[in-house]
Amino acid sequence: MPTTTPPAHVHIVKENRWAKIDLQTLQVIYSTLNSKELKKALELTKQHQTQFKEKWNEWFSR
């Protein structure tokens, strides 16, 4: 039975709060971060988006 790869995303964790961000669209899928933390998480995700997608593809092409 083939496995399904989920859409590329990252999890950002700060203390007991977190966010899940789609790597294609940079849309927030879910977040418990406050607005300042979420803004920073989105900035960092955008800044490293290419590297994150490359690592995602490496991991799921094994």
Rank of each mutant, 00 (worst) to 15 (best):
Q51V: 12
W18T: 07
N34M: 10
I29F: 06
W18V: 05
K20Q: 09
K40I: 12
T25C: 08
S31R: 00
Q47E: 15
P6M: 04
K55V: 09
T4D: 08
W18R: 15
K40E: 15
M1K: 10
V13P: 01
L38R: 01
S31W: 00
A8G: 07
K46R: 13
M1Q: 10
S61Y: 06
E43C: 08
L42S: 00
A8K: 02
P2F: 05
N16F: 08
P2R: 07
W18C: 10
S31C: 07
V10W: 02
N34T: 10
K55L: 14
P7V: 04
T3L: 13
H11Y: 09
S31N: 04
K46G: 09
A8C: 06
A41S: 04
P6T: 01
I29R: 10
R17K: 14
Q47S: 11
L23R: 00
K39D: 15
S61C: 10
T32C: 05
N16L: 06
I29H: 05
H11A: 06
K39A: 15
W59I: 14
Q24R: 15
V13K: 05
T45H: 01
K53W: 02
F52K: 01
H11R: 03
Q49R: 07
T45C: 05
F60Q: 05
N34V: 12
Q47T: 08
I12W: 01
T50Q: 13
P6E: 03
N34W: 12
L23T: 03
V28K: 01
N16K: 14
T5I: 15
L44S: 11
A19L: 02
T3E: 12
P2E: 07
F52N: 01
V13T: 14
F60D: 05
